[in-house]
Design a binder for these strands. Structure first.
Lengths: 229, 229
DNA sequence: CAAAAAATATGACATTTATCAGTTCTTGTT
DNA sequence: AACAAGAACTGATAAATGTCATATTTTTTG
């Protein structure tokens, strides 16, 4: 039995909280819930989306293939985030592909339910706008980091980001486990370079690892590294 | 004598075209026109903006200072573009500073005229949203370029961008002349590196220069370079 | 459980890019 | 026109990062 959007706690975190009762009902009636296994795509770069995805559980990487054949991960979207709004709003095909990096549960909301509300409910539209303004600011920050920080700094920052946004498990490992390749695609470097730096961090006691799991051991030093000491 | 927004052609290019007659009148009555000389700031990073700037003429660089003391130019805003909306919408201080790279004429629109309309006119809000969606896509592209392309490719791309967006003068030089330092801040590299690559391009016959002016001589080869040949 | 496949890891080396030090050219000022 | 100040440029060198080859470990699969 599917749950109703009206009762969904996730909604607090995204623009859907600005919808009216009736609008929400319409969304709820038209939505479908999907389960996506780790590694499977929500959509591919260039796809035309006829709706958006609201993440109920799990994490998706949003990435773009570059000319040299490497993926650049632009964002990690997690619980509460809405994926695909940009392309639905701009009425363009997606510029990014979305692939699950952990098992996911998402709601697919057909675009009509969204666009109708966009045209009629300024509170909702404004709320979406605020979220997008936030995303844009974050994107600006990423640009600056990419161009002004070293790979070492970006990897340190990525670990701190993972800790702050996804937390740690009982044994002190980062709750979201990314492959070394994904890590390198987040920071925009060669996989070997990322691995090398991870080894170095381990030797210096900044982190500890177990298989592909990574745990932060000396957060203070990682922060210092990011800030350029 | 100031001109009225109602008659402003610039408006076509931004979200203000979705305003109603009355809303536009309010904007027109509350706006002030300013002249900004090359090199002067519209605002600095961290400022709280109580309005947005609509560019009537000239170009502004939007940049962010990084920890190592270098500026990263995130965007060049030109005729028709609205600057500062992101921070007005998010009700945050700006994450970027805006400095004129050529003499500018801008209209300053107090935020009340904007926010009122945002709350009441979904067409306007949606239009702003569309523009921001576009900006976000562009930012994603910049992220990918920054991390996956070489400095040489990024400089070649910058020249093509300048040609496509600002055109050329009668003698075939790029109409927007940036200092070597600004160019290096656009592509995110050291000024010396940028200069070196510009010299190399000149030697190879891809561009020609005169003082700080740069003209594209072999567009085809520049494109090939960007695409990785 | 063993074999195969995939991911992680390391070394050697090439390439790219930054840094520092200094020279030459431009531009604006008096 | 002479000077000063700031850009633009060049060279030498160091540091960061990418690439390729290969070894080792982990994970998956039959």
């Amino acid at each position: 039995m599917e749950s109703r959007c009206e009762n969904c706690i996730i909604r607090q975190f995204n623009a859907l909280r600005a919808m009216s009762k009736e609008e929400l009902k319409k969304v709820s009636d038209s939505k479908t819930t999907k389960t996506i296994k780790k590694g499977e795509p929500l959509f591919d770069e260039g796809d035309k989306l006829n709706g958006v995805f609201c993440v109920r559980n799990g994490v998706s990487k949003l990435s773009k293939l570059s000319a040299n054949g490497k993926d650049q991960i632009v964002k990690l979207a997690t619980k509460g985030e809405v994926i695909g709004q940009r392309s639905v709003i701009a009425e363009e095909s997606t510029n990014l592909s979305a692939i699950a990096v952990s098992d996911m549960e998402v709601c697919f909301i057909p675009k009509e339910s969204i666009t109708n509300t966009l045209h009629k409910n300024p509170d909702f539209t404004l709320e979406v706008l605020r979220h997008m303004a936030h995303d844009l600011k974050e994107a600006d920050d990423v640009i600056v980091n990419m161009s002004q920080k070293t790979v070492k700094q970006r990897i340190a920052e990525a670990f701190l980001y993972l800790k702050n946004n996804f937390g740690e498990d009982e044994q002190g490992f980062l709750a979201l486990t990314l492959s070394r390749e994904d890590i390198s695609n987040v920071v925009g470097t060669a996989t070997e370079s990322a691995i090398r730096i991870i080894s170095e961090f381990k030797k210096k006691g900044l982190i500890h690892t177990s298989g592909k799991k990574i745990g932060i051991k000396n957060e203070r030093k990682l922060v210092e590294l990011v800030e350029g000491f």
